[in-house]
């Protein structure tokens, strides 16, 4: 599969029974359809998927890495702050940092200790390791 953003080859990462497709160059993440729901269900935040709504974004249209058709832009999160790309048949594309934001939005307000969720912590570890967040 090729990265929709920079056309690099996507590699698959697996950690603690979670599997994602990841672009080593632009650090974007591809999730097959249903995978986000599975991830969120593990954390108890499955209501988030229902908040997705299509928009006509100004951002450049990207193509689905599986079927090469143009993906639709969708807005996610309570205040609609995260702009994602979705192929209705195959899955979702998250630019660098978008997956973390989406999951944070999905899991907030469910539990007070939601921040301690293993998944959010894990993604922190994978994608923002060793205090790189300030960069």
């Amino acid at each position: 599969m090729k990265c929709p953003q920079c056309s690099d080859i996507l590699i698959t990462l697996e950690f603690d029974r979670i599997e994602i497709d990841y672009c080593p160059r632009c650090e974007g993440v591809w999730l097959d359809s249903g995978e986000l729901a599975l991830l969120l269900a593990r954390e108890g935040g499955s209501a988030l998927v229902g908040t997705f709504r299509p928009v006509s974004g100004k951002e450049r249209k990207r193509t689905c890495p599986i079927c090469s058709r143009a993906m639709k832009k969708i807005l996610a999160g309570g205040n609609g702050s995260i702009l994602l790309d979705e192929c209705p048949d195959h899955g979702l594309w998250f630019d660098r940092g978008e997956l973390k934001k989406t999951l944070a939005a999905g899991c907030s307000g469910i539990r007070e200790e939601g921040r301690e969720d293993s998944l959010t912590r894990l993604l922190d570890e994978i994608f923002v390791p060793c205090g790189e967040e300030s960069r």
């Binding site: 080859i9 590699i11 698959t12 990462l13 697996e14 950690f15 080593p24 570890e125 994978i126 994608f127």
Partner: peptide, 22 residues
């Protein structure tokens, strides 16, 4: 560090850097 990396045959490089621990 526990991360498993799966590289497709098209992956060109001879090395891969772990996105988690570098």
């Amino acid at each position: 560090c526990g991360l498993e990396i799966k590289l497709p045959p098209e992956y060109a490089g001879d090395t891969v850097s772990c996105p988690r621990c570098k």
